[in-house]
Design a protein around this nucleic acid. Sequence first.
DNA 1: TAAGTAGGGCTTTTT
DNA 2: GCCCTACTTA
Length: 948
Amino acid sequence: MSEFPPNDKQQTLINSTEGLYLVDAGAGTGKTFTVTRRYANIIDQDGVDPEDILLVTFTNNAAAEMRDRIVTQSNYGMRELTDAPIQTFHSLANDLLEEHGHAAPTHLGIDDRITGSTRLIEDALIEKALFREFINQFIDTNPQYDDFFAAMSDASQLLDLIKELASKGIFPDAEGWHRDGESHLDGEFEAFESLFEQVNEPRNDGSKQSALRSKLYRYGQNKVYTPEAPAKEEIRGDGKQVPTGVAARVFEEDRSELKAFIHDVYHAYLSFALRRNYLNFSFLQLFAFVLLCEDHDVREAVNFEYVMIDEFQDSSEIQFKLSLLLAGTSNICVVGDWKQSIYSFQYADVDNIREFEGRLERFAAELNSDHERIEFPLSPVTRRKLDTNYRSTQSVLDFSEHALTTPATGRDSVDVAAIREKVTSLTADASYDNSVIEAIQSEDEQEAILAKIDEIVGNDRYAVEGDDGELRAPKYADITVLTRTRDFGRELLEIANQYDLPMAYEGGIEVFRTNAAKLLLAWLRILERDADRGWALVLEEAGCTIDETQAVLKHETYPEAMVEFREELSELETLGGVARRVFECYGCEGPTADVVLHTIQSVQETTTLTRGDVIQFIEDAIEAGSTHDVNAGAGTDSVTVQTIHATKGLEYPIVILANMNAHKFPSSGGRGGNIMYTDPVGLRQRKHYSEAHGVPYIYDNWKVDVLRRCLPREYDEERRLLYVAITRAENHVIFTAGDSPNTFIEELPVEITDVEPDLSSFDLDLPESTPFEVEITTQAGTPRFSPHTFIDEGVFEDGSGGRGMEFGSKVHEFAEASALGESVTPDGRDETNVQSLLDSLDGDLHAEKQAFLPLDVDGERVTISGVIDLLHVTPERAEIVDYKTDLDRRAESEYQKQLSVYYHVVAELYPDREVTMAIFYTSDGERKPIEPLSKTELRELVRGVRNG
DNA sequence: TAAGTAGGGCTTTTT
DNA sequence: GCCCTACTTA
């Protein structure tokens, strides 16, 4: 960035030191430069000391950089600024608690102290392990909450909820909730109702049902509701809209017990953490807030005369409130760019910057409700803009704006005019504009990326600006590959290594998703209980096909060398030793394996985990994709791969925006995952538990099912992510996609070119073979054709699939309910038919059974397999039932072929029974008998498939 | 021909 | 849970 001297707008801001400022500083507009200059300007005034100015950043790196730059721009030296409050919210909170906050927990009715030895738990996985320890203990000592835990699939999700509440400033105290916290848990009916009405508007001038009604057409499917749950027809109504009364009906619920439960878990966990002498990031801010809120002397003692907050779009609700408590005057300056707000999962709330004035008023009023805590005036707020971009060409800047208004899905409608109005367009400072903006698509996307990089390097078409300001041909180091997911980047890196293309991954790697960690997990599973899941992976690694693996698992004929290795491992005393031996055996070395080893050892040291717990820990780590920094020594001239989130603030001459594929880039917005969630619908539990007929049983909560459908999916943050990625580029932007380009890339004003990657000039360097040579001698290993293969080959028409599986699980559900003496209200056509079918049957039911039929075709052994929807066995008969909708009736003859595969298997299984087949139609409940084809006829079919 | 219904495939980011 | 696509219905 060449921004010397400051431009007019920067200079104005640098000079405006008194009063409230909201600064819209877009990408590459010299924000850091201006902020540090402003800081230098303030500090050079008479009577102002470094400790009077708070400068908040969001990363420690940013804080260090700010400090460096201030030193070069002010009369102060590094030594004088060492203790200056230029830091993150978290480290500020840490300092505050250390100095003044030992008694902070008492304000929440917790009789424990924060001490100098209180640790900060930074590793999310370690905290999760500690939380699990806590919650198990809590469950044991609080039997009154058994109902709640019974309805939860994973109690550790409560930790996410606690952290979310903490980020909003909702804390428990001894009696209830701190200050007005509880009101946020109740939700607001008006807010919910307006959401409800929005999604319940009929579309196409009233001729089309509302989005909500459309979504609810599957209400109750694969669900078991309590008998009081209204029928689908009642919920959906018979017009174009869901009846208005439904909004109130789903909202109204007595949540007092649920709130009490959450309160007690939350409060007990805070106590547990303090007792065990640790805090997490959230609790650091929580106690700092409580301290500043309740201890008026401390608050007044730490007040700052000037407050500056950088990257304000990344702040959370509690951080906004903390800022107000920390400010002693109205000299507050927040700097940020709403277009770059991409950290909502870290509780960043983009409305802090978008609705700045409104929130300022509201938060201050809340804080002043019982005591004058914010004493300075809240207006006027002066808005300022920085709009000269020193990074990119005008082409890149103009193009980047499209990202903010691009529909993310086929039906996503964007209010283009409204967004454009809020965007401050940037003007490029660059004197040239040579940008190439292009998109490529290939079945082998990763190879295509490597080929593209090879094409770019040394190519004047992609010229970049050199240190002397002249354009020159690009090097590897000029290129960065940005992806949304770490997965893709890691795989790309592996392939690049195979082709010897210089590439380095920057940022945290999901070390537990590497092969080394998966192998370790597999062997631990084998040691623990000979688990099939462990053996399967180990066998696969040794080169077994899926069929061979299945055969080995079934007969437990594990290869001798592997059994010996297991014995060897079982004699090792520590898990660290096991890990080391496994890695040694498979030749896993290097920094990644070291990190896995180190983490396993430290988990065992800090907690009291058994081997089974460690298995669970690794499973969590894989699932959570938890990352650890790995120092992979990269060469000097190499391509950088990183996630978009990791690149904020950085810039590269050439950006390759990869993996622009459907289901990859525009991912789930909205809210999901947690079983409990808040705002605007209040605290809810997804399932609830009830005692019926003395047998515990869990029902789905129909109200939550409806509520969730009222909360629309938002893609705004996805668009901003795309924007952030594009604005990293100084000169060129290249999008890449596989065979399913997403809507974004298709809607952006860039042409997509199909390419065939040519990597023939590279030397392919494949990894070594595995340590176990396995020879499997069973019938398995021959090609196996499933009915789906037939479909793929065009022998059967498409149209089979999910219904049968759904039917199978329905059968389980209903049968289980019936065994428990439950009465489940059949809801909808499918359920009614399942129920009537079950009523008409006696004997044994087998749902979702897989069958394999071996056939000799032209002297070769071929196995055909498939899933049986339902097998009904009585002493006399065995009936195969396939479940179809009316939709499929026309394909009856095709299903006859499929069912016949099962027929012969069942006939062999039950030689003394009469085997029959039937298709059960859901539309009218008709049960239609089907005649089986002979083996000869099936052989003919296989021949047809194989000969094309 | 537009609207409604059903089935298949997918599901992340980290101070 | 949601989007896309294929199919049915009025």
